[in-house]
Amino acid sequence: MEDLSGSTRMHKVSMTNRRSCVIGGVNDVLSFDIHEILLETEQGMLMIKGDELHVSRLTLEKGEVDIDGRIDSLTYSDAGGAARKNESLLARLFR
């Protein structure tokens, strides 16, 4: 059986023509709408911005997310350092 506890998942991003994206190593989907998706990954917080974004497949047991739409940007922020300072999620994003 596969060990899903801890940070044993490899984080991987695969994008095709800025229209579809497969992301592995996802721990949680924190929020999403048609313009922005916020993911907690093995490598920190990942914010995906674009237009007509849609989470077409979500499998948190495997840590995988498929996203369709026009992808304009992928932005990482380090969640580890902020969590030690007891900052809120919004404070970490808007530093």
Results as ranks from 00 to 15, higher is better:
Asp3Thr: 05
Ser5Asp: 06
Ser5Pro: 00
Gly6Val: 03
Gly6Met: 01
Ser7Glu: 14
Thr8Lys: 15
Met10Glu: 15
Met10Ala: 13
Met10Leu: 14
Val13Tyr: 06
Met15Phe: 06
Thr16Pro: 00
Arg18Cys: 07
Arg19Gly: 01
Ser20Lys: 12
Ser20Arg: 13
Ser20Phe: 02
Cys21Ala: 07
Cys21Ser: 03
Val26Asp: 11
Asn27Ser: 05
Asp28Ile: 01
Val29Phe: 10
Asp33Ala: 06
Asp33Met: 02
Ile34Thr: 12
His35Arg: 08
Glu36Asn: 06
Ile37Val: 08
Leu38Met: 01
Glu40Val: 00
Thr41Tyr: 05
Thr41Pro: 03
Glu42Ala: 09
Gln43Gly: 00
Met45Trp: 10
Met47Trp: 02
Asp51Gly: 08
Asp51Gln: 11
Glu52Ala: 06
Val55Asn: 07
Arg57Tyr: 13
Thr59Lys: 13
Glu61Val: 02
Gly63Trp: 03
Ile67Asn: 00
Asp68Met: 06
Asp68Lys: 11
Gly69Thr: 02
Ile71Asp: 02
Asp72Ile: 06
Asp72Leu: 10
Leu74Trp: 11
Thr75Cys: 13
Thr75Trp: 08
Tyr76Asn: 09
Gly81Cys: 07
Ala82Gln: 12
Ala83Pro: 00
Arg84Asn: 07
Glu87Ala: 09
Leu90Gly: 08
Leu93Arg: 04
Phe94Arg: 14
Arg95Pro: 07
